[in-house]
Design a protein around this nucleic acid. Structure first.
Lengths: 337, 337
DNA sequence: TTGTAAGCGTTATCAT
DNA sequence: ATGATAACGCTTACAA
């Protein structure tokens, strides 16, 4: 392993000069810099980042903490963050929390021990407030929260425009002629789901439809609970559902079909998250798309800029067959005639 | 930031003693160790890993290099690796190559500069051989390759049992009564696809069916090429296809339906990779499942054990509707009657 | 413009 | 069982 001292010795200068030359300091003669660079290349020198980091008291590693790395949403966020951070000379250290509070604390410790330059994180369900974050990170490590954020914590936040998105999705259902639109709303301890519910309500109000609490269904948003929610919605006389997740939208579709009703003719469905399967089903499922890659990019940019602002990443409604009464269904490709 | 010197001063001992006590050396009086541990806890001490790593010349970070982190397969591999590595006290540093050779070299440099304890990697399509890996990593950093491996490189390798898996998939099609079984084979510069093709051929031979090169279709394995392959297979009189990917299997299904044929009655399909959408389509698509999480686990275990063996992770055939003539189709949940 | 020297926080090798 | 000291490789005042 060749060090700056080796280069210095070979050139008859001191390590400090080599260090300056290599780090682009203006306090080096052009001639010397060239000689150093050439010798460094020749000897195959590569800066020891660990030593450099120790000395400088900071590193070029950025920590990313997510509930589960293999979840489509989070892996795309990481991809987006990495695309920015890598270009800026940072590397990405990843920890998963598996939605557990203890693991989140451990991950934060790992980040601190490794003296990361900053932390981008989305909280575990198991984390009830943000005090552990402050305790562990202190105020020397910049924090950026995305998606699941605690407003109480300092630093930048990157969130989706859940209110606006759910508003659009609901308005779209109204425009398609559905008149009794319920919602599978999710769980209200998440700010994101609460905002979606608000958007749904506002859209109904703005379009002269009554807001009926008996067709707001609070539950988890998995396929099974979606099926149950779908059945309840039918009993309550709904002709459409805005669903706060795609898997529960899938379940709701199954429920509607199980009663012999047609989608979208008799019943309209819009999901949320734009999971890749929504575009592959038959019928394809309309979905309110999050923009995880962009959220990752924005999180990284917020870290780089050092500003503590809140960035809102817009959601985009993907209109597909499950809510589209006006166009021809795209049934050719997979369903039996 | 409290250091071991602070603890030493507070206790009236030297930093060396504190270091020994904290790192579990036997050369410390039990009494002293207790005092040190208590004081450390009291003062909120946390070891500076960067300094420790510099001194020890190694780190507790393991690098993982993948083509694209947000691809389902790779993010699951990472998840599997992380589950083992975290438990063993390592953290995971991630780099993507986006399938480009230059990015792979850069990622390897990043790993080396950060003095990672080891590297787990799956090569970019753009990497033609493994010389750059040896050049960059040297022989001081242990290497584990998974999925896309170069046999020429030293170190452990973790691969899927592609031959056996494709053999099972093809045999399954035979057992369902299909008699002219073609294959969408993929591209042959990948050892994995070549092995799948071999398994397909062997299964036909072993079951007394002819191996007909005119129904082996070499192409990329995306939806569009799958559609084309499906049409060609129909023209060639096939009644089934083993597909080396799930997206091309989807395309093939669409092709078969476009000709008014029924699946699985008239035509059988098995895909590969067990992408999540295969279980959500109608009909559900049979698929030869890779086991990415297990591959990640095995890669991490191979790194920890330090042995250079090749681990073969078995694939598992998931029989679903698209190849199952014997059972009732599961059509209730989504398709129009 | 370059050299000198100190130090980042830890650990390892001595010696005591 | 503990202490003194040096060193890991780099950066940065400060001095020349």
């Amino acid at each position: 392993m060749v060090t700056i001292s080796d280069i210095a010795a070979a050139l008859g200068v001191t390590p400090s000069t080599v260090s300056r030359a290599l780090s682009g300091s203006p306090r080096v003669k052009e001639e010397t810099r060239l000689a150093v660079e050439q010798m460094a290349a020749e000897m195959g020198y590569e800066r020891n980042i660990v030593a450099s980091n120790l000395r400088k008291g900071k590193s070029d590693i950025v920590g990313v903490i997510v509930p589960r790395i293999h979840r489509e949403f989070f892996s795309n966020v990481i991809g987006g963050a990495e695309s920015i951070l890598n270009a800026a000379g940072y590397s990405v250290l990843i920890c998963q929390t598996h939605e557990e509070f203890d693991a989140e604390v451990k991950a934060l410790r790992t980040m601190r021990n490794n003296q990361v330059a900053g932390v981008l994180m989305s909280h575990a369900i198991g984390a009830m407030d943000g005090t552990h974050v402050l305790d562990t990170l202190g105020d020397s490590i910049p924090l950026v929260q995305f998606d699941r954020v605690f407003s109480s914590l300092p630093g930048a936040k990157v969130v989706s425009n859940n209110f606006q998105g759910a508003y659009e999705a609901t308005k779209h259902l109204v425009s398609q002629g559905y008149r009794r639109i319920g919602t599978l709303a999710g769980y209200m301890n998440s700010e994101a789901y609460a905002a979606r519910l608000d958007g749904y309500r506002k859209a109904l109000e703005d379009n002269g439809l009554p807001v009926d609490e008996t067709i707001v269904f609070y539950d988890t948003i998995v396929r099974e609970t979606g099926f149950e929610g779908g059945l309840k919605a039918l009993e309550a006389g709904c002709d459409a559902l805005y669903c706060a997740g795609d898997f529960c939208a899938l379940g709701a579709i199954e429920a509607v079909r199980s009663k012999g009703l047609r989608i979208p003719e008799d019943f309209g469905i819009v999901g949320t998250a734009n999971e890749s399967f929504t575009a592959l089903m038959t019928p394809t499922i309309s979905s309110l798309a999050l923009n995880p890659f962009e959220m990752g990019r924005q999180s990284a940019l917020a870290f780089l800029s050092g500003e503590g602002e809140t960035v809102v990443v817009p959601m985009e409604l993907k209109v597909r067959d499950s809510s589209n009464r006006n166009r021809q269904l795209n049934l050719t490709h997979i369903c039996p005639k």
